[in-house]
Design a protein around this nucleic acid. Structure first.
Lengths: 258, 258
DNA sequence: CCCTTCTATGAATCGTGCT
DNA sequence: CAGCACGATTCATAGAAGG
């Protein structure tokens, strides 16, 4: 299978536009050190109507002023979500070297489906790391605030020595608030959070994000002196990611900048 | 079915010794406001050998001197755990009034099984609240620290007004370190954490803990001015719980102390 | 025609961070 | 420092569909 031509690339980053599963199939086996991603959660899906709603209005409260582009792939029911996730996860496993790492964001409601899919896809599930969005999130009267998202951690076979030899010790809980000004995607993650997560890998590593969105993973990888490969379906978000990457500073000690 | 005679009781607290499922069957329908518990996790269960190990050594690091009493019910495989949990959860649902709340601790590995069991048992799953044990837990070289346990939240049918009318807003993440001096049970939780969790209920509520252990839930309920019912299988832990309860101060504004 | 079940719609909530 | 915008939702209710 021939590699598709990238939407954009430079010496540290490659961004492909298209369907994740198709693009992943063209990538060589064992060619990346880690998969770090934030897939569509399909979390609105209690009813077909709610799932079919536009994402630009679906996650937005009545009266909110900001407008952001649509994003696709957020309209599956629970069973389809699990099956679909297991498919791209299996393909990611092939592309990742043995010992490599998977870090995948998910919301509480899809957490059990996602841990199933990770294991069906052949990964060894290693745990859960909460991302505490702090008290800024919308409160729920009389109950516990839905304040956290979760990062599912897994490895391709036995743990590699990505950190063992560096004697690093990663936190098991990340507290980082969301700054809406920074969010270029409805579900955008803070760059600082991504950078802290990527500290599990040494500089020079290759990171793959099959759902790149506005490119936060790629920007963080670049800032940490890593190479990255992104896939994003929407051309609007591809353009946003390209503009961010073209404008964002590269890590000083990056092998790519040498 | 006649009520068994308690192992110990006073005007705020009742402690039964015996098998949870059997004791629960004797409790009246819709007689408690909340179930707050920390069931045996069966967390070692990757191999039968690991499951058959004695519990008092299983959770202790090599070379550690502390010895605590055995506790039972921690040797099930994944499927049996889910089935067993769904049984006592269903019985707890019956004993809980409509609108009442379930808060159940669980470790990451059993989290998906437990959310299944909660829903099989008829509860409406409302979310997950991480308990961040802070950086004091044993680090894992080269990977993310297993630093959190999780509290599964659920309700008996639509949400009651336990907090709506009081206009409370509960945190969605609890950061509280473990003090091993305070731990009378191998898996004992900090009393302060339990008290903060119980803030979701007004004083005077009735709390049920079907796996009372050393009685932390009961002690916290008493300190918050609530009534509580505990069930514990081991006579050693029953004695420990009784001694703690007999020696712990009662809440000043408690209706029980009036 | 009534009862149940599903769907669509809009209101709400408060701590935080930015203006 | 007061004010306003914001939130990977949830709840309640009214209306439609189905039996």
């Amino acid at each position: 299978m021939t590699l598709p031509s990238p939407f954009w690339s430079d010496d540290a980053t490659t961004l492909y536009q298209g369907d994740s599963l198709r693009i992943l199939q063209t990538l060589p086996t064992a060619s990346v050190d880690a998969v770090v991603t934030d897939p569509p959660y399909s979390s609105g899906g209690m009813t077909t109507g709610a799932r079919q709603a536009q994402t630009s209005t679906k996650y937005v409260l009545t009266g909110t002023k900001v407008q952001r582009p649509e994003f696709c792939g957020d309209n599956r029911d629970q069973r389809s979500f699990t099956l679909w996730a297991s498919l791209w996860l299996a393909e990611c496993l092939r592309v990742t070297r043995p010992g490599g790492v998977l870090l995948s964001f998910i919301a509480w409601r899809q957490l059990p489906s996602m841990t199933d899919a990770v294991q069906v896809g052949g990964w060894i599930w290693r745990g859960i790391v909460p991302w505490d969005k702090t008290e800024g999130v919308r409160p729920q009267m009389g109950f516990f605030r839905a304040q956290c998202e979760y990062i599912i951690t897994a490895t391709h076979g036995p743990m590699g020595n990505q950190g063992r030899t560096r004697r690093i010790c990663m936190p098991g809980c990340f507290r980082e608030s969301v700054h809406s000004r920074e969010k270029l995607h409805i579900t955008g993650k803070p760059v600082e959070l991504m950078k802290r997560l990527l500290d599990i890998l040494p500089a020079g590593s290759v990171v793959l994000d099959p759902f790149a969105g506005s490119g936060t993973t790629l920007v963080a990888a670049r800032a940490n002196g890593m190479h990255s490969i992104g896939v994003e379906m929407s051309d609007e978000y591809c353009a946003i990611a390209r503009d961010r990457l073209a404008g964002s500073p590269r890590h000083v000690d990056s092998p790519a900048s040498a």
